[in-house]
Nucleic acid binder design. Structure first.
Lengths: 108, 108
DNA sequence: CAATCGTATAAGCAATTGCTTATATATTCG
DNA sequence: CGAATATATAAGCAATTGCTTATACGATTG
C-alpha cells in the first residue's frame, strides 16, 4: 500500500457526507457504540455498519469490543496521509500554511 | 453552498488519483497550459479537460487565457474548507496537530 | 477566407458507490 | 437451551463516476 493509495483511501472515505458525519460524531462523543451511532442517523443500521467498516479500513477509527457492544473511537494517525500530503506541498501555498511543515516536524 | 458541501467537493475532487496527479503537476509547474498537462498523462485530452473543470469547480485551480492556450495555476484558498475542517477538530487529535488552530488564526 | 491548434463538450459505457431489505453471526440473559 | 440484543454480511439496485471516441468551439496563422 503506497502513500498515495493511503491518501486516496482517506480522501474517498471522508468525501461522503453521511460517512463523514459518522466520523465527526465519533470525534465528538470520544467513544460510542454502533447502536448509538444508528440512533439519530438518517440511514439504516447496515448503512452505518458499512460506513464504520470503511472508516476502519481507512485507519480512521479503532474499535473496542465490550460484550455485545463495539465501541468506536477516532484513530488520529489515520489522518496522517492527509496531513503529510498537505505538508509536502506546503511551500506552494506558503502564505496560508506558512508554518505547517514546522508544525508537522514538531508533532513527530 | 454550505461549508460542508464545499468540503465534500474538495475531498471528492482530490480523492481521484488521476485528478490529484493533475493538481500536483500544476503545483509543481506553477503555471501550465492544458496541453502540457495532457503530455505525459496516462489519459486522453478530454479526460484531462474534465479533471480541470472539476478542479476549477472545486475552487482548487484558477485559469488565465493567453491566446489559444489556457494556463492553469493553483488557487491555494481552494484548500481552505479542508484546512478549516482539520482545524475545527484540532482539539480531538491534539497531540499530532497541537498547533494547527493557532496556525490557522495566524494565516487569516 | 480556410486550415490548424488548443480546449471543451456530448454521448455512451463499464465500474464503483451508497443505500435498501433480508439474513447471518456473535454475545448475553433467563 | 432459546430468546433477545448488537453488529455484520449478502444481494440487488439506482445513481454517480471516470473514461473513451467523436465532435464542436475559439483563437491564431497563412
Amino acid at each position: 500500500m503506497t502513500a498515495a493509495m493511503q491518501l486516496t483511501n482517506v480522501l474517498k472515505t471522508l468525501a461522503d457526507p453521511t460517512r463523514r458525519a459518522v466520523f465527526e460524531r465519533i470525534i465528538r462523543e470520544g467513544e460510542i457504540a454502533a447502536t448509538g451511532l444508528v440512533q439519530g442517523s438518517k440511514v439504516s443500521q447496515p448503512a452505518v455498519s458499512q460506513h464504520l467498516r470503511a472508516l476502519r479500513d481507512a485507519g480512521l477509527v479503532a474499535e473496542r469490543r465490550e460484550g455485545r457492544h463495539i465501541h468506536y473511537r477516532v484513530a488520529p494517525k489515520g489522518l496522517s496521509p492527509l496531513i503529510d500530503w498537505l505538508g509536502h506541498y506546503e511551500t506552494f501555498w506558503a502564505e496560508r500554511f506558512a508554518n505547517l511543515e514546522r508544525l508537522l516536524k514538531e508533532s513527530e
